[in-house]
Design a protein around this nucleic acid. Structure first.
Length: 231
DNA sequence: GACCAGGCACATC
DNA sequence: GATGTGCATGGT
């Protein structure tokens, strides 16, 4: 098999996994937040943390009427840090959140939706320039807050790829993103749902999922396991 | 009590 | 440029 055929086969695998996940889990209706601003706050707070820990924290901020750019900026950092304690890394996340809020106020007059009219590669670069916003956080904001056609990659995505034999593509963020974006139509709805489904799958199986990283992709039929169902 | 959870920046080699 | 480390709480 030449490299072009292998690439084509890999793309097909990426395309084929999606309908299987969708059929099994149904629509996930992401992002689990009400406003674009809430998406941004959640994306920062959830970094390397259980989403459950973030949910309650955001609800608390909302209940206190603090879930806005200006209100959060007016909150003393020490106080903010105490309020977001449950998300873990609360000191560093306080700084990261404030860095984002300062960017938001200065660049968007406090409204992230101002970036909707900016071409997404530029908006992405601007977000990445904020200390504390890395590729996944930036892409989550672009896709789920601004509806830009950007695929979000995360730890679950890496695990899924490695388990399906994508050792080369799974080596770093941009490679994984290129694999998905190069295999799928550039459709916000699909990118939205696919990433959410991968997270859902990951939460179901965690690290207990079958792991066949030693099987070369070209020598076997790929598989996807959903509650014992193998492909 | 260990291990894990929807990262990121920074130091060091 | 690859690899290692600190950041921290809450659930299983």
């Amino acid at each position: 098999m030449n490299s072009a055929q292998l690439t084509s086969k890999k793309k097909k695998i990426i395309r084929d996994i999606y309908p299987v996940l969708f059929a099994h889990y149904g629509p996930q209706r992401w992002w689990p937040g009400e406003t674009p601003f809430e998406v941004c706050v959640g994306a920062i707070l959830v970094q390397n943390t259980n989403w459950k820990n973030v949910e309650g924290t955001i609800a608390g901020l909302k209940a206190r009427g603090l879930l806005s750019c200006e209100a959060l900026l007016e909150t003393p950092p020490e106080r903010l840090a105490q309020m977001i304690r449950p998300v873990g890394y609360f000191n560093i996340k306080t700084k990261r959140l404030r860095n984002f809020l300062l960017f938001l106020r200065q660049r968007c007059a406090g409204d992230i939706r101002a970036l909707v009219r900016v071409p997404w590669p530029q908006a992405r670069a601007e977000l990445l320039a904020v200390n504390g916003i890395g590729p996944e956080t930036a892409d989550s904001i672009l896709l789920y807050a601004l509806a830009k056609p950007v695929f979000v990659v995360d730890a679950y995505t890496r695990r899924l790829l490695i388990r399906h034999g994508f050792r080369e593509e799974g080596r770093d963020y941009s490679s994984m993103q290129a694999l998905f974006m190069g295999s799928l139509p550039s459709d916000v709805r699909i990118f939205n749902e696919y990433h959410a489904l991968i997270v859902r799958l990951g939460k179901d199986f965690g690290r207990d999922a079958p792991d066949r990283r030693d099987y070369p992709l070209k020598e076997r039929k790929y598989f996807l396991s959903v509650r014992g169902r193998m492909l």
